[in-house]
Design a protein around this nucleic acid. Structure first.
Length: 568
DNA sequence: GCCGTTTTCGGCCCGACTGTTTTCAGTCG
């Protein structure tokens, strides 16, 4: 549904329609993407529900219901008739907006990116008025990069670049403050580029130093206050430099999200104020801008954590003094999923325990795999019995850490579990996960998951969808139903901290805690070093409005054990 | 296309950089 709405926005943009009408479609696409539950398919009921949502009126509600029912949109087919085919594809290239896309499609008969590449090669492009040599060269590069695949990067993979660049610039004389902003700061699971904000005096010429940094492959743009580069890794990095008195305003602006900024500026406007990246203004007089707190305060709000700035109700919550006290890394007291050399882990039981101890944890659950998935070399009932005895022996030697006896048990395609009931009942922590048959029809997948979670020994549903970012979509099931059963049975849902999983995601986290589900944040570590991945999971939980009080592994051991025993 | 203790019509966030033309439109974030 979101894709259809976005296509409608693209088509309208090519037509040169009212920009606010275009924005309405894009906002609606975003809203639809974040719907907590599927629509009913009953047009009247769907429309009634949809018009309650912000930014959705009668018209869009009707259109969304139409897409839900028919899979397409009559209005889109009608509007598309006036638009040269292929022009939408051209708009995906940096430097090509609606005007140029339309111009190229009409003047050159270009219908696709391949067609544009041909026009560049033959020199036809340069004969179009408004397209010179520089533009041609840039497009040639953009085409090469785009066709090579310009995807988003996992945030955790971008982190070393972000931190290294910020550190190099911070070390320069005359640089006052510098931070990585953008979706990186909001902790989105993937980032399209890195956005840096710095304050420095005008004589520092920071953008010049920036574009000369080691690792820069090409300079996409450079002015006195703003510059963009492409790193050899393919990652784009933008830098914005402002005076110190504007640093907070620039940080808000570059942290976004765009939708959050638009709404925030709207609030300022209602008070006769103007917010831009330099500060908060009444007329030409600057009232605030040195810190983010100043900026939010100027519109009567407390500071809002970056992870919440997605225009998902955070401004309203801030106004009511109802912002959640988000979970922090230091709240975590233990890890409830990890693997050892007994299955596919690379660390021994002892090495994992030692690493958990050095993190200051009170407990670590060792949850090796079962046997169904052959490649992980999992444990059978005899294997788990041996492992439990080893854990008993280890616990007798440990002081500050308790190792919990666990398993990550495969959910079979029929919803039964890959371990016998007697063994399951002896374990301290039973995590169940999907590792196969991800593509079952949603109804069947829902039945499978519900059956698995109904088993009396199950404590945690691990990486629930099984998705792998940019590689595998994950299982589809009725998340609302699963949450209802999880609450009823006291089963917890995992937020898996592996950067490629981050499963469940932020939106699911939020609807899970709203339903009363208790989340856990686990690393699913396959080595001692991977126990450090916890921060990525905590960040994802924060994006889902999760608080310390929600999360089971912020509890001290005794209370966690009470929770687990209560289940038996 | 949405929305309303400033409005049911007339607003809707705001500014930097590029390239090409020659005063600014287009694009981007």
């Amino acid at each position: 549904m979101a894709r259809v709405l976005r296509e409608m926005a693209d088509v309208l943009e090519l037509q040169g329609a009212n920009p606010f009408r275009i924005r309405a479609y894009r906002n609606a696409a975003r809203t639809v993407e974040e719907l907590p539950a599927p629509l009913t398919g009953n047009a009247r009921r769907d429309v009634a529900g949809l018009v309650e949502l912000p930014g959705i009126g009668e018209d869009l509600a009707g259109k969304i219901a139409e897409i839900a029912r028919t899979g397409s949109l009559r209005a889109l087919r009608k509007e598309s008739r006036d638009v040269p085919s292929g022009a939408i594809d051209l708009m995906r290239l940096p430097g090509i907006g609606p005007k140029r896309a339309r111009l190229l499609a009409e003047r050159l008969g270009v219908r696709s990116l391949d067609g544009l590449a041909r026009a560049v090669r033959t020199g036809a492009l340069r004969r179009v008025r408004g397209f010179g040599g520089r533009t041609e060269a840039r497009l040639r590069e953009a085409l090469a990069a785009h066709l090579a695949d310009a995807n988003r990067t996992l945030r955790a993979h971008a982190a070393p670049y972000a931190e290294a660049i910020a550190a190099s610039l911070r070390a320069l004389p005359g640089v006052e403050r510098i931070e990585v902003a953008g979706s990186y700061r909001r902790a989105r699971e993937t980032v399209g580029d890195l956005d840096l904000v710095a304050s420095a005096g005008p004589r520092v010429k920071l953008t010049e130093r920036f574009v000369a940094l080691d690792g820069v492959a090409s300079v996409l743009g450079r002015g006195p206050t703003k510059a963009s580069v492409l790193l050899r890794s393919g990652l784009q990095v933008d830098l914005r430099v402002v005076p110190e008195a504007s640093y907070g305003a620039a940080l808000v602006y570059l942290t976004g999200s765009k939708a959050h900024n638009i709404a925030l500026r709207g609030l300022a406007r209602e008070r006769g104020l103007k917010i831009n990246e330099y500060g908060v203004y009444r007329g030409t007089r600057r009232l605030a801008g040195r810190t983010e707190q100043d900026v939010y305060e100027s519109v009567g709000l407390p500071w809002i954590p970056p992870e919440l700035r997605e225009q998902r109700g955070e401004l309203e919550a801030a106004r009511q003094g109802a912002l959640p006290p988000l979970i922090e890394n230091d709240d975590i007291r233990g890890d409830l999923q990890s693997h050892t050399t007994s299955s596919d882990g690379r660390g021994t039981l002892e090495a994992m325990a030692e690493a958990a101890q050095s993190l200051g944890y009170e407990y670590l659950a060792i949850t090796d795999h079962t046997t169904r998935i052959k490649i992980v070399g999992g444990l059978d009932r005899a294997g788990f019995r041996r492992q439990m005895r080893r854990i008993d022996a280890l616990n007798a030697r440990l002081h500050s850490l308790t190792v919990l006896k666990g398993a990550e048990v495969d959910i079979n395609p029929d919803g039964t579990l890959d371990l016998d009931d007697a063994t399951l009942a002896e374990l301290d922590v039973v995590v169940v996960s999907l590792h196969s048959a991800f593509n079952l029809p949603p109804q069947e997948q829902t039945r499978r998951v519900l059956r698995a979670l109904s088993h009396p020994s199950v404590d945690i549903f691990g990486h629930p969808t099984g998705r792998l970012l940019s590689r595998r979509r994950g299982a589809r099931f009725d998340f609302g139903e699963v949450c209802r059963l999880a609450v009823e049975r006291g089963v917890m849902l995992e937020v898996n901290a592996q950067p490629e999983r981050l499963d469940i995601d932020d939106v699911a986290c939020r609807s899970a805690i709203a339903a009363g589900v208790r989340p856990v944040v686990s690393t699913d570590a396959h080595s001692a070093a991977e126990l450090h991945l916890m921060r990525w999971g905590v960040d994802q939980a924060r994006r889902g409005w999760v608080e310390k009080r929600h999360v089971a592994n912020t509890l001290p051991l005794s209370r966690l054990q009470a929770l687990l025993h209560h289940r038996r």
